[in-house]
Structures are given as C-alpha cells and as structure tokens.
Design a protein around this nucleic acid. Sequence first.
DNA 1: TTCGCAAATAATGTCGATATTTTCCGCGTA
DNA 2: TACGCGGAAAATATCGACATTATTTGCGAA
Lengths: 225, 225
Amino acid sequence: MQIAPASNSADGSATQRTYLAIRRMIVAGVIKPGEKLKIEQLRTRLDTGASPIREALSLLTSEHLVTRIDQRGFRAAETSRKNFNEILEMRCELEEMALRKSIGRATDAWEEGVMLANYRMVRARQQGGEKFEDLHKAFHMALLANCDAPILLQFCSQLYDLNIRYRYLAGLALNYQKRDVDTEHRRIMECAIARDADTASAELKSHYRQTGAFIAELIGEDVSD
Amino acid sequence: MQIAPASNSADGSATQRTYLAIRRMIVAGVIKPGEKLKIEQLRTRLDTGASPIREALSLLTSEHLVTRIDQRGFRAAETSRKNFNEILEMRCELEEMALRKSIGRATDAWEEGVMLANYRMVRARQQGGEKFEDLHKAFHMALLANCDAPILLQFCSQLYDLNIRYRYLAGLALNYQKRDVDTEHRRIMECAIARDADTASAELKSHYRQTGAFIAELIGEDVSD
DNA sequence: TTCGCAAATAATGTCGATATTTTCCGCGTA
DNA sequence: TACGCGGAAAATATCGACATTATTTGCGAA
C-alpha cells in the first residue's frame, strides 16, 4: 500500500493557495459570517493579484461559503440555525449513502486507509497540534472514500466543511474532550471494517447528531426551524 | 401571486453572461466531452476578456461540467456510463428528498407555481420553440422549489444539468414524443398537488429511470458499472 | 529510420491599470 | 429636523500585457 504524505499546502498555483487560505479563514471563523470580502484587502493580506482572489471566491461561492451579489462584491456566507439544520440533515443522509456504498465494496486497501487515518487523528489529538481538524476530516472522508461515487463524495466533503465552520464559530474545539469522541470514532470504524453497514450508519449519524444538537443550542437565534 | 417573467439571459455582468454561455455550450454538446477549453479561443468567441472566462470556468469546475489540471488549463468534463449512472441515482435520491419536503410544506402559491410551469412547458413543446428545455427544467425545479432547503435545491439543479447533458449528447430531444411525457409530467404534478408524496416520488423516479435506461443504452461504452 | 534533446511556439496564470458602478457624505431645501 | 439630491470617494469588474510553464517542432546522433 502506498502511504500518502500528509498533504502539502504550500504547493500549487497562486489560485490554489489563495483558495485554500480564504476557505480556511472562513471555516475557522477568522472571517466572520456576513463580513465583506474586499478584493483590495485580500490582495494585500495574501500578497497576490486580483485574478487569483476572484477565482478563489468564485469557487467558494459554489460551495456556499461565500455569497456574491452582482456588482456589489463578495461576502462570507451568513449563518443561521436553519442553515445549520439543513447541513446536518443533508450530511446524515448523504454520508449514510456513501458509507453504505463504501462498505459494500470494501477492500483491504480501504480498511487500511481507514485504520491509518484513525491512527493519525488520535495521535494528533494527543499531541495537541493544530493538525487535528484536518486529520479529523481525513478520517471521516476515508470512511467514505471507497464509495466510488465522485460526485457524492464531493458533496460530503463540501457539507463537512460547512458543518465544521459552525463548530469553530461555537468555539468548542475543546468540548470534544468531554464526550469520548475517540471511542465513538473507533466504534464507527470497527463496524465499517466488520462490514456491518446498518450499525456503522447508525453510529455515524448518532455521532453527528450528538455534536449537532449541542451546537444548535449554542447558535442562539430563535427562528422557527 | 407575482408571475415571474421567463428569465432574461442578456442582463448581468460579463462573468454571468460568460458563465451561462459556456455552460449552455457544454450542456448542449456544442463543446464535446474532453474538449480543450482554450482561454484565447473563448475570448474571441465570446468577445470578452480573460478574467470573466476564468471565473466562469472556475464555477463550472465546481459543478463537474469542467475539469481543471493545474498549469494545463481547462477541459469539458469527460462522460462515461459510470458517471451517468451516478448522476441518475443521485438525482433520484435527492429529488425524492426535496419533493417530499416540498409537498410536506405545500401552499397555494407553490401549487400555482407548479401548475404555471407545467403550462408553459407544454405550450413550448407544442409551439416547438427552443425554449422547451429551459422550461422543462423550470417545471421540475418548481416541484422542488417549496422544500425550503437551499443547498439541497442547488444540488438538484446541478444534477439536473449534468443529466440533461447526456440527453443532448444522445441526441434525442425528439425521442420524447414517443413516450407520452406530457402525461407523465401531469401525473407527477397531480400527485404532488394532491399531497400524495409517496405516489409522486414513485412517479418521479420512474420518470427519470425510464429516460435514464434509454440513454444508458445509447452511451455504448462497455465499462463495468 | 527512430530516438532524444533543444529551440521555438503556444497556452496558462498572474499582474497592474482603467472604466464603471456603488456607496458614502454633505449640502440645500421644505 | 428630516428628506432628497448631487458630487466625491471607494470598490468592483474588466481589460491588455507580461512572465512562466507546457507543448510542439525540427535537428542531430545512434
């Protein structure tokens, strides 16, 4: 098995770097919901021209992290409880689909990939580095990676980022330690590797909904849904 | 009820126009799968600068209509039977979700919107204009429009375009007349308006799968899935 | 003839400048 | 004081030009 290195972020074109940088800032809450994204401002901040920024923002618009109003520029997407609920629900539906497919086509290589991703994630938490969140996503994506449905996979990835944004905004990277999240992850992984799609799906959704319920409370905002 | 005009395509920024123009060309098969999309070429063809084209292509990349290889430019996305099957399946799943939500929240205004969209679509076919395909999409989207889940709706819209591309490539805008598609549409609409979510979903999926099976055959290509 | 290397060609990606549009501010009027 | 109308300032969107990278072409050697 070819072990992939832990993704370099310094490579690639200016557009790619800019895209990743802005996305990171929005997801991590450095840029707040609704905040204006001025080209000039980003230009100096990221030390690049207008074109890469514009392209990056266009991409982010497709991903619902940025909204665009014609002739009036870009803004970080607004957040709302309703939006959060939709993301959570969609995630449960689509990840279940992907997980079942993944398990249905299980191979040794996939198993190993999941195992490795879990190991890296757990280690990162113990070491307390900043890498944890990326590896957390990598673990969840590794579970789905075998589904052989690129579009579905991309939807899941997108929804993951939208969801994690709320976690950052709620400011509870810490809260994780209270629940025994490592155990939850291990249970999901073990069910998946044991080819038990029903239990794995149930555990996965429960995992998401527990975190989800907690965050939903913190969002304040009365609005209906 | 406010009756919306049948969408102007000449308005908006250069980026918007460019985006719509290129998307239309790819979806309609004027640009073939895998074809190189040279900036210079598009620049003269659409009479605009490089920036709007680049932005438009970035957007289309997110929608799986264009692929990008770093430092090597853009190409129209490849097609394959496997890709088609994924699109079809995703569409059935997601549109069912959206339709059920839409019906669950049914209102008079929504009913009227569906009715109107159907009327316009049927009329366009009879008159044989080029507007039919747009109005066909408008009808299907009208069914889902009430779901109150913007992300889901966008996924459906995206998948619709990906799917219809295969119909164009198979070259059977005509084939439609053989089956009584108007009746299928009417049945779906009537079930939806009658708040019968189960039957409506079943009819909708059957509608897609009938067309889908027909197209899948025409794709040739042996490949596994 | 075929292969590989190197120059020429072409295309991408990026930058800085400009025209157009929006936004902000202050002034005059009811 | 409140309102609306300009005009100034700022920001967006777009263009044309340039640097960098890929691709093709042609030449020489095995």
